[in-house]
Write a protein that binds this DNA or RNA. Structure first.
Length: 993
RNA sequence: GCUGAAGUGGUGGAAUUGGUAGACACGUUGGACUUAAAAUCCAAUGGCCUGUAAGGCCGUGCGGGUUCAAGUCCCGCCUUCAGUACCA
């Protein structure tokens, strides 16, 4: 009987589905899993794109599936769910083009994804599937939004609190004692004042405290996409999706006060087992810097400039100040003489896009405002400049310039001929600034003279505080996250407006469903697509509006027209899996207390500063309100590397005839012709092509060898065989661009298409590059088990690696060998002997070696090496002709996480009635590794180096005696004194001098 | 510039705490079986030296160091990749 993977895989996929093998139970329905520890293995859920899956997508899913199956063997109650992040731009853009509702596109794509995923044999608990675009799911996204709206951040308690508490405080004592994270422009008021404010005034003030708030902010506007983008959605100054330019624009938008959590997001990183590079990028993104806020008075003016500096110790080195061109004081302080020049400069900078500004950081530009500030200590005048090297968005948008200590200030000062006073002892600053804060002391600085960086900083802050012109401050780069998108295919806000103030629709009316619209484009008046809907959520709204009697005109839609961004649903979905069908709560307390958090989260590192930061933020917020029991949602995280594709290229003849147009000639030449550098040789080749009678008619009349060039062209990799030769059925499948092609080899001979060698290049896998390998094809040709093993075998999980189909036969033949091992009967029928373990000492050794290695590998997520271990085991057992059930049965359990279908099939043949997924992982017993001959497994390489293969069960004294005897002989031969031998439990014998 | 990761045969990659470098696989070469092909199986495969064998020498990006022993630890470089960037 041969290994018929197609039937086997279909059979077991159906079996798992029919028997609900992988459905995880919550308390109190645990049944057999009662008392078993929980384990939650999660993949980042996919966005179901129209292109379907390629072999790169399942890599992380296979790894997490192996781990989930392994944990089941180890007796854990495993939660391993999957779902879809199904709101997003591509479905909407498709809708704009075709008019097809994004819900339909999304549904179709999900069906396709599911079909592909099912073929790979994952042990997902599909009964818990979530889709972010499902109203039953986004009901809770909206609910969390309302919770955020009804919260503020109390710095004293260092947690989010209910907005009602804040109102109570305000009406009792005003806001003087409130230490909250809020907008900068809140002014102080007393309890009496508060109580006299109108309802609208109160709402305006509260909005400045809420954790999600509406504010006019400068946002990243992408005109081509017609929406705003968050900082993490912009790459190199253009949109991450589409690569369109992004400009700064002021708009009223919803924002999330993530900055309130900056410090906790930083601190939390120490408590979680996430990859260091990922933690580092979050740390950089949050960008904490310690320093001081300093106030500079402006001469002859009421205004003051606040600056943030990390070097208050250099305050005596200040020789000018620079404001960002957008700084609000620019207009107010500029002197009449400088006004024209300043305005020109401000306008010029405003016009430049983000990208231009980034591209050209070298050019120094700036203008003097004519105003002077007063140095807090020396009281000397300090000229105030504006310059675009100062960013409005960071710190206070203004800097105190210390040219001797900062290269940018130095360059600016040199460029405009400003003083560069030196305040560093024994340092030469004639060529460049001295930014090294640790290797000098301060001089020319009054009370800071002779102090080092640390002491001077402390003293400077103290003195500033005495003056009332500064204080120590910690600044974060992390900005509040814009939460509004001008799009259709996203969660609608549960928000309506009364008197221009936002109101939450009562939670009992949720979900607020997306309305139908005729077109998915913005309205003619520039409103988001939802502006096209006449009425929606009407029932919910009617009740709400009735409460506000002063509203009489309800025909204009008072609903929020923006939708939420892509990261809304993904910021808490992992918790929803714990209790996905609960209609009364986001999840029950019982469920969240049982599953608590994700034990293992696998996904790509591209989400480092997006999803993974926002999700941590929401988790901490939910934790503050006691909704979740832990404030980090994932204990361990692994970033799987990308699987790259290998594009295929041919070299084609081009003829640039007099017309100047390159005309492709369908003659393919060998790769090396493209790289010929020797001009004579190259000319020969070209002459051969053009003078050949057979090819001549392909060229335009009167073409010369000089007109010919060889160019690289991409071909679809489905037309390439494993030896990188062209292989396709008929010319029509080769594409319209290539017809009646002639292939030439290096000897100038015409060859067949299947003899022509293409060149392969490693690149990102994508549909547009015709280099996509489809997992369905692999499953069909070799089977899911081969695909799973091969993806693991390709290399370490976390590394990027190219897909190379050539190597797949290796793992496939391993599975065939495995199959054969269990079919040692006549004519290859199933047979295993009943020899006990002790009757197969060699086999037992192989088995226990494998148990030990595989267990270690899985625990360390080195799945690639276990595949090798299996291959060695099967080769050894085959060589030993071992067919004992006592060996083969536990071996199967080891293999089953990796190749579950074949394992199930053989498990059944071993007369088990239940699925192998319930089998217990075998226990490693070192006794089986000791040589049966009783000889010590010591090897010696002649250079005083001893190793024991495994000395776990050996008598320490005996080993020492044996090695010592050996050592003595060796040393005496060399004429030296023998050294002392110490046996270290484990496997190494140390010889210590 | 800053931060992080990584440099090992023709290729992908192995090598717990320093302990026989190159496991396993691909590829290549040779062989067996076969009318033939496919499939399968066996053998060889880091480089160099020696007629073979035995054996020897050199080998983990480069240069030093620690050690009985270094791919692994330390110091100084080089290269590649990724992230980030006028962050005061």
């Amino acid at each position: 009987m041969s290994y018929n993977f197609r039937d086997i895989e279909a059979k077991w996929q159906k079996y798992w589905k029919d028997n609900k093998t992988f459905v995880a139970k919550n308390p109190p329905l645990l049944g057999e899993m009662e008392g078993a520890p929980k384990y939650y293995v999660l993949d980042m859920f996919p966005y179901p794109s129209g292109a379907g899956l390629h072999v790169g997508h399942p890599l992380g899913y296979i790894a997490s599936d192996i781990y989930a199956r392994y944990k089941r063997h180890k007796g854990f109650n495993v939660l391993h769910p999957q779902g879809y992040d199904s709101f997003g731009l591509p479905a909407e853009q498709y809708a704009i083009q075709t008019g097809q509702h994004p819900a339909i596109t999304t549904k179709e794509n999900i069906a396709r994804y599911r079909e592909q995923l099912d073929k790979i044999g994952f042990s997902f608990d599909w009964s818990r599937e979530v889709r972010t675009s499902d109203p039953k799911f986004y009901k809770w996204t909206q609910w969390i939004f309302i919770e955020l709206f009804n919260s503020w951040y109390d710095n004293n308690e260092d947690k989010a609190r209910s907005i009602e508490d804040l109102e109570t405080i305000f009406s009792a004592e005003g806001n003087t004692n409130v230490n909250a994270v809020c907008d900068e422009d809140v002014t102080e008021f007393t309890a009496k004042e508060w109580n006299n404010f109108s309802s609208k005034e109160k709402q305006e003030i509260l909005l400045k405290y809420r954790l999600t708030y509406l504010a006019e902010t400068e946002v990243n506007w992408c005109p081509q996409l017609g929406t705003v983008l968050a900082n993490d959605e912009i790459v190199n100054g253009v949109s991450e999706r589409g690569g369109y330019p992004v400009v700064r624009k002021k708009m009223t938008q919803w924002s999330m006060r993530i900055s309130a959590y900056a410090q906790r997001l930083l601190d939390g990183l120490d408590t979680i087992d996430w990859p260091q590079p990922l933690k580092d990028s979050q740390t950089n993104w949050i960008g904490r810097s310690e320093g001081a806020q300093v106030e500079f008075r402006i001469q002859n003016s009421e205004f003051r400039i606040e600056v943030f500096t990390t070097r208050p110790d250099t305050i005596f080195g200040v020789s000018f100040m620079t404001l960002a061109p957008e700084h609000e004081l620019v207009q107010k302080i500029t002197t009449p003489e400088q006004k024209a020049e300043v305005e020109t400069y401000v306008e010029a900078t405003a016009k430049r896009s983000e990208r231009e500004r980034m591209a050209d950081v070298k050019t120094i530009s700036g203008v003097f405002t004519g105003a002077y500030a007063e140095h807090p200590f020396t009281k000397e005048p300090v000229p105030i400049w504006i310059g675009d090297y100062v960013l409005a968005g960071y710190g206070t948008g203004a800097v105190m310039a210390v040219p001797c200590g900062d290269q940018r200030d130095y360059d600016f000062a040199k460029h405009f001929g400003i003083d560069i006073p030196n305040i560093f002892e024994g340092v030469d600053i004639s060529q460049e600034a001295f930014a090294d804060k640790d290797n000098t002391v301060i001089t020319n600085s009054d009370f800071l003279n002779g102090l080092n960086y640390k002491k001077a900083t402390k003293r400077a802050i103290y003195e500033l505080e005495q003056l009332g012109q500064g204080e120590g401050k910690i600044n974060y780069r992390l900005r509040d996250a814009v939460f509004s998108r001008q799009r259709y295919w996203g969660e609608p806000f549960p928000v309506y407006y009364v008197d221009e103030m936002p109101q939450m629709i009562d939670a009992k009316h949720l979900p607020i469903k997306l309305p139908e619209v005729e077109k998915y484009l913005p309205t003619e008046t520039g409103e988001p697509p939802l502006g096209r809907a006449t009425v929606w959520a009407w029932d919910a709204l009617k009740g709400e509006l009735a409460k506000n009697e002063d509203i009489d005109n309800v025909n204009i839609h008072p609903l929020e027209l923006n939708t939420m961004p892509g990261w809304a649903g993904s910021s808490y979905y992992f918790n929803r899996y714990m209790d996905p069908h609960n209609e009364d709560e986001v999840f029950s307390k019982e469920a969240i207390d049982y599953w608590k958090d994700v034990d293992l989260y696998i996904g790509g590192s591209e989400h480092a500063t997006g999803h993974l930061l926002y999700a941590r933020f929401w988790q901490k917020f939910l934790f503050d309100h006691g909704i979740v029991p832990v404030d980090e949602f994932a204990k361990k995280l692994i970033n799987q590397g990308m699987i790259l594709g290998e594009g295929a290229f041919v070299y084609k003849v081009f003829c640039n005839n007099k017309g100047g147009l390159d005309k492709p000639i369908d003659i393919f030449v060998p790769i090396n012709w493209y790289y010929i550098e020797d001009e004579k040789e190259l000319k020969k080749k070209k002459e051969f092509i053009i003078n050949n009678e057979k090819f001549k008619n392909r060229f335009p009349e009167g073409s010369n060898p000089e007109d010919i060039s060889f160019m690289k062209f991409r071909v679809d990799i489905s037309l390439i065989d494993t030896s990188n030769k062209l292989n396709y059925a008929d010319d029509s499948s080769f594409g319209i661009r290539y017809k009646n092609v002639i292939f030439i080899n290096d000897k100038n001979e015409e060859i067949n298409k299947n003899e022509y060698l293409v060149i392969r290049e490693v690149e990102k896998m994508s549909k547009s590059k015709y280099n996509v390998v489809n997992p369905d094809t692999i499953c069909h040709d070799y089977g899911a088990d081969t695909l799973r093993l091969y993806e693991m075998f390709l290399g370490p999980l976390e590394q990027a690696k190219p897909w190379n189909t050539a190597g797949i036969t290796g793992v496939h033949s391993f599975l065939k060998k495995l199959w054969k091992l269990y079919h040692s009967g006549p004519d290859g029928t199933f047979y295993v002997s009943d020899t006990p373990l002790l009757g197969e000492p060699e086999g037992a050794k192989t088995l226990h070696k494998t148990i030990k290695k595989v267990e270690e590998d899985i625990e360390n997520f080195s799945f690639n090496t276990s595949v090798s271990t299996f291959m060695i085991a099967v080769n050894e057992l085959t060589a030993q002709k071992c067919n004992a059930r006592s060996i083969l049965e536990p071996l199967l359990v080891l293999i089953s996480p990796y190749a579950p279908h074949i394992a199930e099939e053989l498990w059944q043949k071993l007369e088990h009635e239940t699925s192998i997924s319930t089998a217990v992982f075998p226990v490693f017993d070192p006794a089986h590794l000791v040589e049966s001959t009783k000889e010590y497994p010591i090897s010696f390489n002649g250079k005083m180096r001893f190793t024991l293969e495994l000395s776990l069960d050996l008598n320490k004294d005996e080993i020492e005696a044996a090695v010592m005897a050996h050592e003595k002989t060796q040393q005496q031969l060399a004429g030296r004194e023998p050294k002392k031998v110490i046996v270290v439990p484990g496997k190494i014998v140390n010889v210590v001098g």
